[in-house]
């Protein structure tokens, strides 16, 4: 499973949307459930699923799937 596929299934389960609602270009403003509460839930889910301990300052920056994928790469998540 690629990192995107894993992210996709985590985000879908977290936001309770169908898996295909999350694409490689999804962003906070393109998915209704990804509101400010949904965003905190996604941050918590990322930490749990990828064993990370994130910085509060990163929370706001990770507002799209590309930004999250790039962050995961920089954290050497595979």
């Amino acid at each position: 499973m690629s990192v995107f596929e894993k992210l996709q299934s985590i985000m879908a389960a977290t936001l309770e949307v169908p898996t295909n609602a999350i694409s490689e270009s999804s962003a906070m403003d393109s998915i209704e459930e990804w509101d400010s509460l949904g965003h905190v839930h996604i941050m918590v889910a990322l930490e749990q699923a990828f064993d990370l301990y994130m910085d509060v300052d990163d929370f706001a920056k990770l507002d799209s799937v590309p930004a999250i994928l790039q962050y995961l790469e920089s954290e050497s998540v595979s």
Binding site: S9, I10, A13, T14, H41, A45, Q48
Partner: peptide, 8 residues
């Protein structure tokens, strides 16, 4: 469980 696991 993690949050996505709990939802599932």
């Amino acid at each position: 469980p993690s949050l996505p696991q709990a939802n599932t």
